[in-house]
């Protein structure tokens, strides 16, 4: 696995230019200020940061939704640059995304079967019967049942919807899956189920994850490598153990200090402080 880099990002920049008006000058906001990283096949890179740090901008560039202002992105050895247009279908099939809010990312008028078949319909010329079979087997893989095929999104719980969103994302057998806060809208026990599902799917399909999150306990559990972002810059980048055992940047330290600790020693310490 080592040395097999599937995603190579170098000095990636993205500026958003706000239009000037009659009384307002044009201004530029740098959402990404030169980010570089590598992701190995079958591994998980966690991107951590707070709102406004550029992690979703990064997700949009990786999934070829938005162009980058500068820098290069190589996926599976091929450079992508959507500002020049003509990204091939094969290229787009390699990267898929799962969004944060499972309530907003499924069309309420579309049955689950259609949700899962749509990527195949658009990107392949498989006949209807085959699409249906693939959708049914995918339902099973993500822990849903065949009878869910004909139901609408509102009939599902948040955790089930996130399973559907994940199923849709891997219908085309992508190489790289970008997960934008996939568990932050879910309850703790459901979160555990979804994290387990992601781990199972990673083993089965040799998937590579870019896992965007603000929850350090989740990151610590799932990540191989961690990148901490702060105002568009990667302030910390290393293996999980490096980052968690020896954070270098002051922001990473702040982030760790702010994360609630649920171990017994820290509770004891807090109660002792309070009694004093």
């Amino acid at each position: 696995m080592s040395g097999d880099i599937i995603l190579k990002v170098r000095d990636l920049k993205r500026d958003y230019v706000t239009k000037g008006g009659l009384f307002k000058k044009e201004s530029t906001l740098s959402a990404l200020k030169g980010v570089s990283f590598d992701v190995e096949r079958g591994s998980t890179l966690a991107v951590v940061g707070e709102s406004g740090c550029g992690k979703s901008t990064l997700a949009r560039i990786l999934t070829m939704i938005d162009p980058a202002t500068a820098g290069t992105v190589e996926i599976d050895g091929t450079a992508i640059d959507i500002s020049k247009g003509n990204i091939s279908r094969e290229m787009r099939q390699k990267v898929q995304i799962v969004f944060q809010n499972p309530y907003g990312s499924l069309n309420p008028r579309q049955k689950i079967g259609a949700v899962l078949e749509e990527p195949l319909l658009l990107n392949s010329d498989k006949p209807a019967a085959e699409r249906r079979d693939l959708a049914l087997s995918m339902l099973e893989k993500v822990g849903l049942k065949p009878e869910h095929y004909g139901r609408y999104p509102h009939m599902f719980s948040g955790g089930q919807r996130q399973r559907i969103a994940i199923a849709r994302a891997i219908m085309l057998q992508p190489k790289l899956l970008v997960l934008d806060e996939p568990v932050s809208a879910l309850d703790l026990s459901v979160q555990a189920q979804i994290l387990n599902l992601l781990a199972d799917l990673q083993d089965e399909f040799d998937l590579t994850y870019v896992f965007i999150s603000h929850d350090l306990s989740v990151v610590r559990y799932i990540a191989d490598k961690v990148m901490v972002m702060y105002f568009g810059e990667a302030v910390e980048y290393g293996t999980r153990d490096e980052v968690f055992s020896d954070p270098k940047h002051s922001y990473t330290k702040t982030l760790f200090a702010a994360t609630p600790r649920a171990d017994i020693e820290s509770i004891r310490e807090r109660l002792a402080n309070k009694a004093a």
């Binding site: 703790l188 026990s189 555990a192 387990n196 781990a199 199972d200 306990s217 559990y221 649920a262």
Partner: peptide
Amino acid sequence: KALLSALPENATGDRLPTVS
């Protein structure tokens, strides 16, 4: 017990125990 063991920081094995 289930809730506490579903906390990712308490994970011991390869997979998280879930309420189910």
